[in-house]
Design a protein around this nucleic acid. Structure first.
Length: 839
RNA sequence: GCGAGAGUGGCGGAACUGGCAGACGCGCAGGACUUAGGAUCCUGUGGGGCAACCCGUCCGGGUUCGACUCCCGGCUUUCGCACCA
């Protein structure tokens, strides 16, 4: 390791007493122990008068131990939390472990150790590392999602949703990961691959438990406006919810057998009735006159019924082929394919017969699974129509085109385009036409305005072992029966053969001794649900549990919850923008509506931190560039490591970890140590140093709430440089507040120096140092003097100096005066900033 | 393709609301103290001239007395979504 030579070698000459050198290991050990003895990180949950709940996203306790990314986030939160405490607030900063889930289970399978043994060991290791980092965590209230005392209430949350009809079981095409052998939520599929293991995700038709998050789509979207969140996060949530407004339009299908002879007949715009009707969703109802064909997704339930006898084989072959495709092939291969069904539908606007096709570029999961194709004004339809020689018609003009200008490509602009070839709607702006045409079709009962969301219901069943069993019992007589709340938790049995298989059911299903139970309603023989729930259900409510840890009779105490929640500030990674953060909001809304909590948003303030990379590249095990915190704690100390992480770059943007840079921070703390150790109480503090000090107190106090930690640290370094200029001895009053400023960043050394300065109690009891406004404001200001916009020099004047004062000062400086030739045409004066003389 | 960011010395990064570009740190060069220095301190460090000055914040235009900052066009890059109708 880099800094491995002991601090005090070689031995000093005899008789010479070396003053105490900064030894981070000793200092940090001492304060770790003292904090633990004094229980100084514990929040007074019941008695607090100014509660402040500073939350960080709890980690998954991996076997590898704490990742620097975790530490970066936690340190950033800790600084913020300690700062709030120094402001006099009762800060509660808890920590927990998100230990259920595929990750742990896969690791357990790999190393051949049961997760019930593995997880406690990992948690112990994490706890040790987190304590080594000096985080102000209240270790008396931790959460472990795999402990029955926690997942009992996770199951309770499930039952609340079930009670309200928000949890339901349905057979649906779901994402199946063939490697992890379980279904995945939509949010866990990235580019058609499992976000966990990267395997190509397949579609399977399985019966699964879902949460009706789509019922809350509008609220999840609207509430975003009132949240103080990182913009990147709200933007991602808006995109994920994906609201689009448009129309649902009905196309009557002619029966391919009964109406075979009438295909040539021009059908006038009669009301389309009967069951043979295709509903499409479109955001462009204005282009209805250009709809020249209709497309159904290959999975569309109507497809069989409308396919003509002649086309039956071809359609069913296409359908089979489409179902075999994995998601990634279907979504990335943009080459259009499809087949004609042999049927025709009536365009409700024109009354013309248009062919019905099936093609896999239409997705069953979005909208109605069917579209009206307008090749003239949609790129995908254009491509398809070109390939299959279907008619392309222009119904919108813009940019100098006329109604007859041929379309070389789809014209999709809906800004200032106007309609053409659309009968009475010709000439209307697209926006106006959308409204009028929808209304016109609605009068003919062929359309209605609808809002569509991209958001899907949340699939929460997992065919795995390592999770909370879904608390439901199936009885032949009573059907699906919820496990009574008094019978919770449904304990996860300790089984040895927990390896998942390809059967589509959980390994728990192999254990009848567990799954066979009497029906809670009628007592007849029944069986348990054998799926477990998604990890994101565990983490979807953990913030409610922390303050109430210890209460076994309720998931969260209502008085405590009312006092401490919603969470005051939340810091975490943006990788959870559409997972954890969306699910937590949803569950909170449900619990609010059920009367369990008095708020419907869990996190009023959220900040996404940036990512730490190393020497320009992402850290990964395969690259071998992973930073092991233990090594850095050991060779540099936690204070230096923490401060360095915060100094790397802006907290919300992350930074580049370079080993070289850490020495600067170590040197800063070391010099602070020396300055305090050697400080004196005799004489008067230097006025210029005091000015700098008070400016720094102001600056750091402004930067920390903005999470601008890197600039706060820079300001403290600058201040210390002023204090120590030329190896001068510092006056105690010059360094004491500086120690206080450093304390949120480097708490151990700050406590030690505070004690060296004669204090008996913790520095965190002392509050934040106030600054003297007159000292913090500048005595003189430097004003830039420009001639014709070019800076020619600077002058030093009192802050109150007016234009004439500055002008006089400028003329007194020959280096500036020599540029002032002739009469000024114009003089711009900005007080405290600059003087610009235009000649 | 759509959406949201970002582009500043050898490097990480500063710069309020349009007002001295490069704070702070690393690295580098030189020096002091010292048995020693990997401690501490001092000096220098965007480029060109080595002086007066000139040129410099991705590129090209524009607004302005004045632009890293605002506007228009383009390039590069990170992240999110992506056949979403």
């Amino acid at each position: 390791m880099t800094d491995s030579v002991p601090e005090n070698t070689p031995v000093a000459p005899e008789g010479f007493v070396e003053p105490a050198a900064y030894d981070p290991r000793a200092v940090e050990r001492k304060w770790r122990e003292r904090w633990a003895d004094r229980a100084s990180n514990r929040a007074d949950i019941d008695g607090a008068s100014r509660p402040y709940y500073a939350l960080m996203m709890f980690p998954y306790p991996s076997a590898e131990g704490l990742h620097v990314g975790n530490l970066f986030a936690f340190t950033g939160n800790d600084i913020f939390a300690r700062f709030q405490r120094l402001q006099g607030l009762d800060v509660f900063q808890p920590m927990g472990f998100d230990a259920f889930g595929i990750h742990s289970e896969n690791y357990a399978l790999k190393v051949g150790v049961h997760p019930m043994e593995l997880i406690p060991a990992n948690i112990a290791n994490f706890t040790r590392q987190l304590q080594r980092a000096g985080l102000m965590i209240d270790w008396s209230r931790t959460v472990d999602t795999t402990h029955p005392s926690y997942y009992k209430w996770t199951q309770w949350v499930f039952l609340q949703l079930l009670k309200r009809g928000l949890a339901f079981k349905k057979k649906a095409a779901v994402n199946w990961c063939p490697n992890d052998k379980t279904v995945l939520a939509n949010e866990q599929v990235e580019n058609g691959r499992c976000e966990r293991c990267g395997a190509l995700v397949e579609q399977r038709l399985l019966e699964q438990w879902f949460f009706r998050i789509t019922d809350y789509a509008e609220r999840l979207l609207n509430n975003l406006d009132g949240l103080d969140w990182s913009k990147t996060t709200t933007t991602a949530q808006r995109a994920w919810i994906g609201k689009s407004e448009g129309a649902q339009i009905r196309f009557r299908v002619l029966n391919p057998l009964e109406d075979a002879g009438s295909a040539a007949v021009h059908v006038t715009s009669e009301v389309a009735t009967g069951s043979r009707e295709i509903r499409v969703f479109t955001t462009r109802p204005d282009t209805i006159f250009g709809a020249t064909y209709v497309v159904l997704a290959p999975e569309h339930p109507l497809l069989d019924a409308i396919t003509s006898f002649e086309q039956r084989d071809e359609v069913s072959a296409y359908r089979t082929q489409a179902s075999k495709q994995d998601l990634i092939a279907r979504k990335t291969n943009k080459e259009k394919t499809g087949v004609f069904t042999g049927s025709y539908a009536v365009n409700p606007a024109t009354g013309e017969l248009i062919p019905v096709w099936t093609a896999d570029y239409v997705l069953m999961e979005y909208g109605t699974g069917a579209i009206m194709a307008v090749p003239g004004h949609d790129e995908r339809d254009f491509e398809f129509a070109t390939k299959f020689a279907l008619p392309i018609e222009r119904v919108v003009i813009g940019g100098g085109d006329t109604a007859r200008t041929p379309l070389q490509a789809a014209f999709v602009d809906d800004g200032d385009g106007r309609l053409c070839n659309s009968e009475q709607f010709n000439g209307l702006l697209v926006g106006e036409a959308k409204l009028q045409i929808t209304e016109w079709l609605a009068r003919k009962h062929a359309a209605e305005s609808v809002v569509n969301y991209r958001l899907h219901d949340w699939c929460i069943s997992r065919q795995r072992y390592w999770g909370p069993p879904i608390p439901v019992i199936y009885c032949d007589a009573c059907g699906t029966v919820p496990v009574p709340e008094k019978d919770l938790p449904v304990l996860l049995p300790n089984i040895q053969d927990f390896k998942p298989d390809d059967s589509g059911v959980s390994p728990l299903a192999r254990h009848e001794e567990w799954s066979r139970v009497p029906c809670p309603a009628c007592g007849a023989a029944a069986r348990r649900e054998t799926d477990v729930s998604d990890t994101f259900l565990d983490s979807g409510w953990y913030f409610l549990r922390y303050p109430s840890v210890g209460r076994d009779d309720v998931p969260f105490d209502s008085t405590i919850t009312q006092k401490w929640l919603p969470v005051s500030s939340y810091i975490g990674g943006n990788e959870h923008a559409v997972l954890h953060l969306l699910y937590s909001r949803f569950l909170t809304m449900v619990l609010h509506d059920a009367g369990h909590v008095g708020f419907d948003e869990p996190f009023t303030k959220f900040r996404a931190h940036g990512m730490i990379i190393r020497e320009g590249a992402k850290m990964s095990k395969s690259k071998g560039n992973v930073v092991n915190p233990d090594e850095y704690f050991e060779s540099w100390g936690a204070d230096t490591f923490r401060t360095y992480l915060m100094f790397l770059g802006p907290f919300e943007e992350g930074g580049d970890f370079r080993d070289g840079g850490i020495s600067g921070v170590k040197s800063f703390l070391n010099r602070l140590w020396i300055s305090v150790r050697d400080s004196t109480t005799s004489g008067e503090p230097d006025r210029e140093v005091l000015r700098k000090l008070h400016q720094t107190i102001r600056k750091v106090g402004e930067d920390i709430p903005k999470l601008s930690y890197n600039t706060a640290i820079a300001a403290m370094m600058e201040c210390l440089n002023t204090v120590r200029r030329g190896e001068r001895q510092a006056h105690r009053a010059e360094v004491l507040p500086l120690v206080q400023l450093v304390s949120p960043f480097a708490p151990h050394i700050a406590e030690e120096l505070w004690e060296m300065l004669g204090h008996q109690t913790s520095i965190f009891e002392a509050g934040w140092p106030p600054y003297d406004v007159s000292l913090a404001s500048q005595e003189t200001v430097t004003i830039a003097v420009q001639v014709g916009g070019k800076t020619r020099g600077t002058v030093s004047v009192p802050p109150g100096a007016v234009e004439s004062d500055v002008m006089a000062a400028a003329m007194a400086d020959p280096a500036i005066a020599k540029f002032m030739v002739g009469t000024p045409k114009k003089i711009i004066f900005v007080p405290k900033r600059l003087l610009n003389v235009v000649l």
